[in-house]
Amino acid sequence: MTPEPVDRYPLLSVRNLSKHYPLRSWWGGKGSVFRAVENVSFDIRPGETLGLVGESGSGKSTIGRAVTMLNPPSAGTVAFEGTDLAKLSAGEMRRMRARIQMVFQDPYAALNPRMSIGDYVAEPFKLHRPAMARAERRDEVEGLLARVGLDPRFARRYPHQFSGGQRQRICIARAIALKPSFIVADEPIAALDVSIQAQVVNLLQDLQDELGISYLFISHDLRMVRYLCQRVAVLWHGRIVEMAEADALYEDPRHPYTRRLLSAVPVPNPVEERARLRAASLLPPADPNATGGLVEVAPGHWVADTRYS
């Protein structure tokens, strides 16, 4: 069983997505297979933010790169507005990228050091609106820089002249240039100072209200996910173990892994904190071999492994 769209037609529909990497044995022959992501299904509705949380190596970024076809999945389908992305030709997929954008984790690495930020933000227009006049493109770029809170006169500067938060704004300006309907934000605030994180998250939220963008928000910052996301999926060893409305998930976590993950968010009270850690250690171990679909335990609340329903 897979979660069905509840109220609205999904913008993005991911079904049974898997990403496997063949492991070679020492003599170069076929070895076993590393299952980075296994049988993952979810929907994202228009204007919605789905949070994808999990520890390092749980396959969060792999999913982000799979749904954008930067690193296509080994199995399963990714349907964007009903179009199976895997069936598109390379050229069709490039045109589709006007509608699907990505914001990367490390704003220091995601900017080309030898391209001025004006050229960088103008690139989507050059690629997808080749007929646009130079002056019009410049106006658009200046408008975008202003929109993300940067001085438009910065357009002639180069990335190393900016701070991390400013660089992430540049990346966001480029991502929203063509008014996409879907953005994968792969840990967009993980590399930023805490004081800057809120600014960037608020910018993402404002842009969502303004442009109706849907986000797949990948993060290990559970508090930020609760703040930003309407629904949250918890990823563990490449599988979704629980997915629910954010409030339901945080108030009533069902899966042992979700509970342990949430208990890892410290509470600023040593007595309470110690009790919580003890409770978490008494949880039954989650079953890593639990396969198959999720079970709906409450409306819109899906859990893998029926033992915990």
Binding site: T68, L70, G91, R94, R95, R97, A98, Q101, M102, F104, Q105, D106, A109, A110, L111, N112, P113, E123, P124, L127, H128, C171, R174
Partner: peptide
């Protein structure tokens, strides 16, 4: 292998 090359792909560069 740098991320800005992947970013370039993500924006639709041939």
């Amino acid at each position: 292998a740098e991320e800005f090359v992947e970013a370039a792909r993500a924006v639709g560069n041939p």
